[in-house]
Design a protein around this nucleic acid. Structure first.
Lengths: 134, 134
DNA sequence: TATCATATCGTAATCATTACGATTTGTAAA
DNA sequence: TTTACAAATCGTAATGATTACGATATGATA
């Protein structure tokens, strides 16, 4: 997912493309990993002095709902990153810098066979630790 | 993990066995699944009128730190349950009632081979959905 | 350029969690 | 059993993240 694709989704669903929305997307595009709401708020405050926290959180939720961002809990805080648009996969997440590495292992097929009477709606498979540079 | 084992751990590490601590453990022993801090607080207030929220949260963290409880995020809220003491495994978690089902699938060996330069510290593999009764 | 629904602001409210001094209470030694 | 003391809890306030909301500003479309 990049800024261009995200804006297309917004437009198609009838949402407006404002400067703040574009800058939030740009922040995550260049972020290369998971970032907190606070990180984003600080970034936005540099350009938009006195920006309302409401604006930041509202758009974070909007983007998560529209599958433009994905989120996870890291060190007790919610973190966000651009959603991957390629094939299904999971991530190693560096708990120090938030960078991720794609992991192409998913045991869900095996698991589904073991849960015949359950309705499976979602799953999470994440590996945490330190990346080579941290 | 049951109440008896948990109290042994507390005692061994020099923590006191208070009525409140025993009742918190009893709550999770009979809970059979994940419960929120609020669930626990409500339960405790029935018996201990005017109990301080500090007491509840402090002990939740103490138990999590001592590996008596494990926790996860469910519907945006932290949930806790008694820690499993058997062999390593993962869980299906019902997002409606919080009940869990043991899943004996773990692909970490395969994953470790793919991350030679990374320090792996933890991993999470959880399946979410509805259990047969929900 | 005018219109209008949407987005944002400014600020306050909410909610979960944490902090802290005062008081109470297990625990272990006398 | 009593005493002594560190640990636990209370009562209450502070904190911090998030959400709410009426007023105002601003994209998008005609």
């Amino acid at each position: 997912m990049d800024v261009k694709q995200a804006i297309e989704i917004l437009t198609k669903k009838g949402y407006k493309t404002t400067g703040r929305r574009k800058d939030i997307l740009a922040f995550f595009e260049q972020a290369d990993g998971y970032r907190t709401a606070k990180d984003l708020l600080q970034f936005m405050e540099e350009k938009y002095e006195g920006i309302s926290p409401d604006t930041v959180y509202r758009n974070l939720h909007l983007y998560a709902e529209m599958k433009i961002l994905e989120n996870t809990e890291l060190n007790g805080e919610k973190h966000f990153r651009m959603k991957c648009t390629t094939h299904h996969h999971h991530h190693f997440i560096c708990s120090s810098c938030g960078k991720t590495k794609e992991i192409n292992v998913c045991p869900m097929e095996e698991v589904e066979n073991k849960l015949p009477d359950y309705r499976i709606e979602d799953h999470k498979f994440e590996i945490y630790g330190l990346c080579p540079s941290c």
